[in-house]
């Protein structure tokens, strides 16, 4: 029982960052119809920005996090402006290839700049974990959960409570009619890609200190993000949030009760199961929703 409770706690903590990854990816797909193959690279970049901000810039840990998120936002805005805007109206395959290329460039860029040796990010949290009855959790992981949960709530509020969110949802449902309402659709696209990118960077900046930072870290993160989005239903934000926690639970239980070698396989098992039994995902209706 104790072991199970510990797994549930770990699920909660891992799930928060997975949800961030999935929401970023599903937002970009849902609104822009772009399959974002730079998502994993942006996750890596977020982790390296966090590393740079803490070590080279000497910002405190808590100031470094928003810096890394902002960096992801700006990089996303540039990627959209330079690569995606000229391709608007091009078919999906073209955009996909360009994004794969951009992902390779970003990943190789981090390898070139930082080398292949893994870096660790120092944190201000005490080493001793917090004991909660029979289970324990490190302070760092607790902070990661809190930060991820806040970002999820913030994103949800942005989409459902603000003027930009209204424009994003309108563009998602019908971009021509949104334009007729006076929505600046090009700006909505850039904002969407920047926000999605900043969420990927946030996930990297949060998990970077938990694990280590290395140039290929984004590859597995990207696959997991795709698993989450397929599970939750393409374009469904709520689906991505819940999908993140389901994947984390599957990984925890797979690693805990089958073999720790199965942890990263769970994502693929989920993709296969969803595609076989429920191809639209768990939470998407026939018509996709915001």
């Amino acid at each position: 029982m104790t072991e199970f409770l510990q797994h549930l706690l770990n699920t909660l903590i891992l799930g928060g960052t997975y949800a961030l990854l999935g929401i970023g990816l599903t937002l970009i797909f849902g609104i822009m119809n772009v399959v974002n193959f730079t998502h994993g690279a942006l996750y890596t970049v977020g982790a390296y920005l966090m590393y740079l901000a803490v070590t080279a810039l000497g910002l405190g840990f808590f100031a470094a996090l928003p810096t890394a998120i902002l960096g992801g936002f700006l990089l996303g805005a540039v990627l959209d402006r330079v690569l995606l805007r000229p391709l608007r109206g091009a078919d999906m395959d073209t955009t996909m290839l360009v994004m794969i290329g951009a992902g390779i460039v970003l990943q190789s860029g981090t390898l070139w700049l930082f080398g292949g040796v893994a870096k660790s990010i120092p944190t201000p949290f005490p080493d001793a974990p917090l004991q909660l009855g029979p289970v324990s959790v490190s302070w760092l992981r607790l902070f990661v959960l809190g930060a991820a949960a806040s970002l999820i709530v913030l994103t949800y509020g942005l989409i459902n409570r603000t003027r930009l969110g209204l424009a994003m949802r309108a563009t998602f449902q019908d971009h021509d009619t949104a334009a007729l309402m006076g929505v600046n659709v090009r700006l909505v696209y850039t904002a969407t890609f920047a926000i999605g990118s900043s969420l990927a960077a946030a996930a990297g900046a949060l998990l970077g200190p938990v694990y280590v930072v290395f140039p290929q870290m984004g590859g597995m993160a990207e696959l997991k993000a795709f698993a989450i989005v397929i599970l939750g239903g393409l374009g469904s934000i709520t689906g991505a949030a819940i999908g993140g926690f389901i994947l984390a639970l599957a990984e925890e239980l797979g690693a805990g009760y089958i073999s720790s070698g199965y942890r990263d396989a769970m994502g693929f098992l989920i993709i296969i199961a969803v595609l076989v039994f429920r191809p639209t995902g768990l939470f998407a209706k026939a018509e996709r929703i915001g």
Binding site: L166, R169, A170, D176, A178, L180, I289
Partner: peptide, 22 residues
């Protein structure tokens, strides 16, 4: 527009708010 093109997954009030977006 032709075919009404209301935003189906938004409330009536949100559709009207979009009309006044600018």
């Amino acid at each position: 527009p032709e075919g009404r093109r209301v935003f189906p997954q938004m409330s009536v009030a949100e559709n009207l708010a979009l009309g006044a977006y600018l």
